[in-house]
Computed example of a mutant assay.
Amino acid sequence: MVYYDILCYIDVPQEDGKNIRVYLNVEIQNNPYPGYSIITRGYAYISRIVSEQWGSEYDDKL
């Protein structure tokens, strides 16, 4: 099970009137050497965030 500390998004207005959605995931770590690569952990969180959006923001019809 993965728990997020803070997960939110910001819609950034563009000159053409559309928005770009930027996701912000803030994780607080209390161990600077957790025994695994921080990059690997980042990939896991990014994958989870994208998969949770499947069907609501992303689908196979795009």
Rank of each mutant, 00 (worst) to 15 (best):
M1K: 08
V2I: 12
V2K: 09
Y3W: 06
Y3H: 11
Y3M: 06
D5M: 03
D5A: 02
D5Y: 07
D5P: 00
D5N: 05
L7P: 00
L7A: 02
C8P: 01
C8G: 05
Y9W: 15
Y9P: 01
Y9N: 12
D11W: 12
D11S: 13
V12D: 10
V12M: 10
V12K: 11
Q14I: 03
Q14Y: 11
E15W: 11
E15H: 11
D16Q: 06
D16E: 07
G17Y: 11
K18V: 04
K18D: 09
N19K: 12
I20W: 13
I20F: 13
I20D: 12
R21S: 15
R21K: 10
V22M: 14
V22E: 06
Y23H: 14
Y23F: 15
L24S: 05
L24R: 03
N25A: 04
N25P: 03
N25W: 04
V26G: 03
E27Y: 00
E27S: 00
E27D: 00
Q29E: 14
Q29Y: 09
Q29M: 09
N30K: 11
N30L: 10
N31I: 02
N31D: 15
N31Y: 07
N31E: 06
P32K: 07
P32V: 02
P32S: 06
P32G: 05
P32N: 10
Y33W: 12
Y33P: 03
P34R: 05
P34Y: 09
G35M: 07
G35S: 06
G35D: 05
G35H: 10
Y36G: 08
Y36I: 05
Y36K: 08
Y36D: 03
S37V: 05
I38T: 08
I38Q: 15
I39D: 10
I39G: 08
I39V: 12
T40C: 13
T40W: 14
T40N: 13
R41D: 02
G42R: 07
G42P: 00
G42Q: 08
Y43N: 07
Y43K: 08
Y43M: 08
A44V: 08
A44P: 01
Y45T: 00
Y45V: 00
Y45L: 01
I46K: 10
I46A: 13
I46G: 04
S47W: 06
S47Q: 10
R48D: 03
I49V: 12
I49N: 00
I49H: 01
I49E: 01
V50R: 15
V50T: 09
V50F: 14
S51P: 01
S51F: 08
S51W: 07
E52M: 05
E52I: 02
E52P: 01
Q53S: 09
Q53F: 08
Q53P: 05
Q53R: 14
W54H: 09
W54P: 01
G55D: 04
G55V: 02
G55C: 03
S56R: 15
S56M: 11
S56N: 13
Y58A: 05
Y58P: 01
D59F: 11
D60F: 13
D60G: 15
D60T: 14
D60P: 05
D60H: 13
L62K: 14
L62S: 14
L62F: 15
L62G: 13
L62N: 13
